[in-house]
Amino acid sequence: MENDSNRSSRATITPYPDGPYLVRGDFVVRDQEGNELPVERRTIALCRCGKSQMRPFCDGTHKLIGFEAPSGQEPWPGD
């Protein structure tokens, strides 16, 4: 699996298998009012299972609830 995105420019969002979205590159996280959320690291994990206790960031809770999701796009129902 490659994660060598161009760090200096575009932001990339990578869904990890059964885990969070990892965000790399040039990005900011803002709430709906436009306030920037503090980010202390170059790569962050955004909650994908909805059960993190520090949303929007991941805290590993997906492992406790058996969250499952592929890294790629899920097939349309019926496909």
């Binding site: 885990g19 990892l22 690291r41 790569t43 520090m54 991941c58 805290d59």
Partner: peptide, 14 residues
């Protein structure tokens, strides 16, 4: 808590 929620995915998959 926050750092390793990032690291664990990179460590396992990448």
């Amino acid at each position: 808590v926050e750092a390793d929620a990032v690291h664990e995915n990179i460590a396992a998959w990448d």
